[in-house]
């Protein structure tokens, strides 16, 4: 197992390198440049280009950049002059993360619950109810859900603060907003896999053995049906903790998502590169962790995995 993890980590480093290279050249392929403020005079812009090394040939810039990354230096931002990219990530990521893990828990707990309930009541009222909830989850994107929740529960009813402050209470609305679409995805997936498991022979065996419904669901159905859900958890987790620009904007969260979008549109190369690499590392790591967990839970995969992975 340890050898497997080491191998995966090594591969992850390779992947990161490919991504960094890819992003670097993609970004520089654009015909724009970051110093577009109309109030900057041309000579000032030229001076800035020199300052950030953008006047050098691309290959040279690439080598310099890669050297710096190897040293753990992601450079300084262009949009926020002087500020180190790694510091900015360090400051804002925890805020995205605080929302992200809460959202993940909401999504997983309720998603699994709704999915299983739906499957156990296949084509009955509860099934349709959970479909309705799931569909509302996917059909109302956070762009619409966020403002409505903020207005309804924040302004009209006054139950929650309308923006994130230092209290735990204030994290509830944005976490729900963030969680809903993942919740729906998980519940749909869970419903499908549970139905599949319910049709398996070993469930019939368990039934004929006289196990109670509760025991069957707990011991056999859930454990088997949850497998595919675990595979999507990696990317899902990464997507949730990297922050969502929509939720961050609506609830005034000082997270990473908004930085990312605004720096892409403003071509702040060091920031884009820094955040992309950071995101990529997060995603790779969470997939790796999920794979390891998966390997522990599902013994079949360990055997099959030798050929596939």
């Amino acid at each position: 197992m340890l050898k497997y993890i080491l191998k995966r980590l090594l591969m992850a480093l390779g992947t990161l390198w490919v991504i960094a290279t890819l992003t670097f050249f993609l970004m520089h392929a654009l015909p724009n440049d970051p110093f577009t403020d109309p109030k900057l005079k041309p000579e000032v812009k030229q001076a800035l280009r020199v300052k950030y090394g953008l006047d050098k040939p691309l290959s040279e810039q690439y080598i310099i950049y890669m050297k710096n990354i190897a040293k753990g230096d992601l450079g300084t931002s262009i949009k926020y002059p002087g500020r180190s990219v790694s510091d900015m990530i360090k400051q804002s990521f925890p805020k995205s993360f605080a929302l992200g893990w809460r959202a993940l828990i909401i999504a997983v707990v309720f998603g699994i619950f709704f999915g299983v309930v739906a499957a156990l009541n296949h084509q009955k009222f509860l099934d349709y109810l959970s479909i309705i909830i799931a569909i509302i989850g996917v059909s109302i994107p956070s762009i619409i859900l966020g403002p409505i929740l903020a207005y309804l529960f924040g302004v009209q009813l006054g139950w929650f603060p309308v923006t994130v402050d230092k209290t735990q209470w204030s994290l509830i609305l944005p976490s729900i907003t963030l969680a809903l679409s993942s919740l729906a995805t998980i519940s749909r997936l869970m419903r499908t896999t549970t139905l599949e498991v319910l049709g398996q022979d070993y469930i019939s065996t368990a039934k004929s053995k006289g196990l109670s419904r509760y025991q069957i669901v707990w011991k056999h159905v859930l454990r088997n049906a949850i497998m595919p859900v675990i595979t999507v958890l990696g990317p899902l987790f990464a997507a949730l903790i990297t922050g969502s620009i929509v939720v961050e904007k609506i609830f005034a969260v000082a997270g990473l998502g908004e930085y990312f979008v605004s720096t892409i549109t403003e071509q702040d190369y060091p920031m884009i590169m820094g955040i992309t690499i950071f995101y990529a590392a997060l995603i790779i790591l969470s997939i790796l962790i999920v794979d390891i967990i998966y390997g522990f839970i599902d013994p079949r995969l360990r055997i099959a995995g030798k050929g596939g992975k």
């Binding site: 992947t15 892409i264 995101y279």
Partner: peptide, 10 residues
Amino acid sequence: EILMTVPDML
């Protein structure tokens, strides 16, 4: 895996 790890926004 590589393509998926590059953020969509980019």
